[in-house]
């Protein structure tokens, strides 16, 4: 299995380096902005850290977590094109091992993304002279757990062989859930606006944020408990599906 893992890591090394570069540039630029609020030309400007710091970790986490897995997305399509997928059946390796190697690579990338996301939070907090935010750490963990949905790429690509086809079919299959989520989001914002008007007499960003906050905290607390089970369940499901697809031997 080591050979299979090495192969995939070797093939995605370029995209990984580019992701790292994008991440470093983003973290460095934003850190410089934070530093310049007390040691540069933004000194005296109010509200810069308050506006940027609560969001910065989120974008850095997205770059790290999504970017690290990005290079791995089309590897199965390329394996079909290069006939490696066919050749792999001539090797003394079981379907479980082939699937496990793909999941291991994806796991390594997700873990690396998680470490980078944590690192970004530490760097931003140091640059902004703010304490490390525990809610931010929790949010990163929840995002990371939800990123296991990205593992679905493995069985989907084994099934459909082509990234465009896999993406189209996934979108069609998931459209009811996406529509339900948008509808719920719309209704929730509506509800919060009504509540803000009722409690504070006006609907502004500040009053809306006050109404949102307890709900977000509650969702985060539930999320941090549910996330590991969600991630483990998805991983088991996708792994079982991948092995099944490999056993089909679509030739």
């Amino acid at each position: 299995m080591k050979g299979l893992i090495y192969r995939e890591l070797y093939l995605i090394r370029k995209t990984t380096v580019l992701t790292l570069l994008a991440y470093l540039i983003f973290v460095a630029m934003l850190s410089l902005v934070f530093i310049s609020t007390y040691a540069g030309n933004l000194r005296g400007e109010e509200g810069v850290i308050e506006a940027l710091y609560p969001q910065a970790y989120f974008y850095a986490a997205c770059i790290a977590l999504i970017g690290m897995g990005y290079g791995h997305n089309d590897i199965i399509q390329k394996d079909y094109q290069s006939h490696w997928q066919l050749y792999s059946y001539t090797l003394p390796v079981s379907e479980k091992k082939i699937a496990a190697s793909k999941f291991a690579v994806r796991g390594i990338l997700l873990l690396a993304g998680l470490v980078l996301a944590f690192a970004a939070e530490l760097i931003f907090s140091a640059a902004a002279r703010m304490p490390v935010s525990f809610p931010h750490i929790k949010n990163i963990l929840i995002i990371c757990a939800f990123m296991t949905i990205g593992f679905s790429e493995i069985p989907l690509m084994l099934r459909f062989k082509n990234q465009n086809k896999a993406a189209t079919i996934t979108l069609i299959a998931c459209s009811p859930v996406l529509i339900a989520m948008f509808w719920f989001g719309y209704k929730f914002v509506d509800f919060c606006r009504d509540k803000a008007a009722r409690l504070y007499g006006e609907v502004t960003d500040k009053t809306l944020a006050k109404v949102f906050a307890p709900y977000f905290d509650k969702v985060r607390e539930i999320g941090i408990i549910v996330a590991p089970f969600f991630a483990a369940g998805l991983l088991l499901l996708f792994f079982w599906w991948s092995v099944k697809e490999l056993k089909r031997r679509r030739y």
Binding site: M1, G3, Y6, R7, L86, Y87, P92, V93
Partner: peptide
């Protein structure tokens, strides 16, 4: 068993050194 197909089943981005590292862990 060794199988040889009419087309090379190795990714175009690989080289022989990488291929050796991969296959020595498999066989």
């Amino acid at each position: 068993i060794a199988a040889v197909f009419d087309e090379l089943p190795f990714d175009d981005r690989l080289n022989a050194i990488a291929m050796d590292k991969i296959l020595r862990e498999i066989f």
